[in-house]
Design a protein around this nucleic acid. Structure first.
Length: 575
RNA sequence: CGGAGAGUGGCGCAGGUUGGUAGCGCAUCUGGUUUGGGACCAGAGGGUCGCAGGUUCGAAUCCUGUCUCUCCGACCA
């Protein structure tokens, strides 16, 4: 491919609205262009990377027994009503009407459609297991799209669905996908980690997320270096034990705390540490009020609460609801004589007493509160977000927290959708049984973005070879010289022969421009052909990742190149 | 949805408080000189200043409304 005939509109400056590195570089390298919030055009160079990532996904999926299909993006509402998700998926589901005023949605995921296909096809246990997948554009009407391809509304996803006759089969299918995902992300040259995860709104019982490790990640993950434990913080359990203290003897009493709404303000006002307080958070759980208590310095883990009470929707109470339930403005809610039926407390609160809490009365708190004596706690549970001072729930050793970008997620769905949609088969005994499902997603466009987050420097992108738009770039420094042109053609032909995907910069530009652009678009191997080098009988090869330049002799180029290429690839340490 | 900010040639920005010919850098086009890390000189083209109203002799600028985008939060495979 010749650069002069391949559209790569590079920019010297990043667009003002780009915040994260991948967004800036993808735009500057001419790989994407924004149409509107969260919706992008993949330009020729960008599409090449996505195509390469897709090819790796496809290969590994096929190897793992998947069959590729392509399902419709526009899906009828009745199918979603049948699964119950038309009402529960929320505003992220983009709903549209056709000319007959019938309801449809744009597919954010395809459990309904795939289950509909399979229930119409599969009759016998002999046809199972089955694994169907597709690589396709998804649409999710995100509340706040951001960070370029990282969280778009329209994005490319590989979604696979497995169907099995029993739990053992599902376990096998899940294991196979888990292994395939490890292979996929390893082959892409990403530094990643599979972690235990919450199953979220897709539902189901068991799941793992594949996290690319990067500072800009929106997720926080817990890893233990002593054992193999790794989990999303949403999911990470907290070990908590101790001695339950005796009921407090000092009576509780009111304290005036004018205008002190936050724990910080009250703690400063009363000159007591945040650890002496209990934070009372009120939620609307499927329309019912629920209170959750955590220590003043802790953060409530909403996912844990949601799972505990099995709520379909869980939202922090509005100021109006707070007023209605506590008879006080926001900032003074407390568990004592709280007119809320269900009060959940974090485990940690069981092992201490003498708390300060809100008094459900404006500008007032209560001190010397004892939960055992003064509050009817519905249940003690693990409700808070894990911190670095906690220990590994598996082995009890130290843990650390890091940021990650979720690029893949594998779920065991069980019978959630097959049950709702009546996806059954006849077993060996001629009995009707519900299939067990798993679902497995990879954010393909997000993979490319997260790869850039992980591999870049001040000059631009450093693509790992497997998902680079091209593997090699031949830079022609003097398009007016026949000698240089001939050598470029020769090198190009040679590289092609080696099965290398190569781009030639044959533009009428000054060398400086070509070098800058070469670094920006991040092709892993650069071969520079110029009059100066040829005079000395050498070509210059640059490893984009390290920036290291190597002189390759014109005579015996083939051998020298192969050796150099091995070194470049070895540096990537790709499995 | 709450809070903050921004919409001016393709991109990055100035101008706005004090209303009066719409400007700069990059990019583009032409000619010339250059040519191993984003060249220089000379010239050229391109903008109903997000949109709609209003005030005014006159609005990018003031007022009202509206749309869009970005960031923080809430939310989220």
């Amino acid at each position: 491919m010749r650069w002069s005939r391949f559209y790569i509109p590079t920019l010297k400056e990043a667009p003002a609205d780009a915040e994260v590195v991948s967004h800036k570089l993808l735009t500057r390298a001419g790989m994407i262009r924004k149409l509107t919030s969260g919706i992008y055009t993949y330009m020729p160079l960008g599409l090449r990377s996505i195509t390469k990532a897709s090819a790796i996904v496809r290969e590994e999926m096929d190897k793992a027994g998947g069959n590729e299909v392509s399902m419709p993006m526009v899906q009828p509402a009745d199918l979603w009503q049948e699964s119950g998700r038309w009402d529960f998926y929320g505003k992220e589901l983009l709903r549209v009407k056709d000319r007959h005023n019938r309801d449809y949605c744009l597919g954010p995921t395809h459990e309904e459609v795939i289950t509909d296909v399979v229930r119409g096809e599969v009759r016998s246990y002999r046809q199972l297991p089955m694994n169907l997948y597709q690589i396709q554009t998804k649409f999710r009407d995100e509340v706040r799209p951001r960070f370029g391809l990282m969280r778009g509304r329209e994005f490319i996803m590989k979604d696979a669905y497995s169907f099995d006759k029993d739990q053992e089969g599902l376990d096998e299918s899940y294991k196979a996908m888990y292994a395939a995902y490890n292979a996929i992300f390893s082959r892409m040259g990403l530094k990643f980690r599979p972690v235990e995860a919450d199953s979220g709104s897709i539902g189901g019982s068991f799941s793992h997320e594949f996290m690319v490790l990067a500072e800009t990640g929106e997720d926080t993950i817990v890893v233990c270096d002593a054992c193999s434990y790794a989990a999303n913080v949403e999911r990470a359990e907290i070990m908590c034990s101790g001695e339950e203290p005796a009921a407090l003897e000092i009576p509780m009493e009111e304290v005036a705390t004018p205008n002190a709404h936050t724990i910080e303000e009250v703690s400063a006002f009363m000159n007591a540490p945040a650890t002496a307080f209990i934070k009372t958070l009120l939620f609307d759980a499927d329309g019912e009020p629920v209170a959750a208590l955590v220590r003043g310095d802790r953060e409530l883990n909403e996912v844990k609460l949601k799972n505990l009470i099995q709520a379909d929707t869980l939202e922090l109470a509005t100021p109006e609801q707070v007023r209605e339930w506590t008879n006080a403005p926001v900032g003074f809610a407390g568990p004592v004589k709280l007119n809320v039926k269900r009060i959940f407390a974090d485990n940690e609160l069981r092992y201490a007493t003498d708390w300060v809490v809100g008094a459900n009365k404006a500008d007032t708190h209560l001190q010397h509160v004892c939960l055992k004596r003064d509050v009817e706690v519905t249940e003690y549970a693990d409700l808070r977000v894990i911190t670095e001072s906690d220990v590994c729930p598996k082995c009890g050793k130290e843990i650390s927290l890091t940021k990650g970008i979720e690029v893949g997620h594998v779920f065991k769905l069980g019978t959630k959708y097959s049950e709702a949609l009546g996806c059954t088969f006849l077993d060996e005994n001629g009995k009707d049984k519900v299939m067990l499902m798993g679902c497995y997603g990879i954010g393909v466009s997000r993979v490319v973005a997260s790869c850039i987050e992980q591999n870049h420097d001040e000059n631009g992108i450093c693509f790992p070879p497997p998902i680079a738009p091209f593997e090699a770039l031949v830079v022609n420094l003097d398009i007016k010289s026949d000698e240089v042109n001939d050598k470029v053609d020769e090198i190009y032909a040679f590289l092609k022969e080696q099965g290398i995907d190569v781009l030639v910069d044959d533009r009428k530009e000054r060398p400086g421009v070509k070098f800058k652009d070469a670094d920006l678009i991040g092709i892993p191997m650069q071969i520079v052909v110029g009059g100066r080098g040829l005079k000395n009988g050498i070509l210059e090869a640059k490893d984009r990742r390290t920036g290291e330049k190597t002189e390759l002799p014109v005579e015996g180029f083939a051998e020298a190149f192969k050796e150099w290429k091995e070194k470049v690839y070895a540096g990537w340490n790709i499995g």
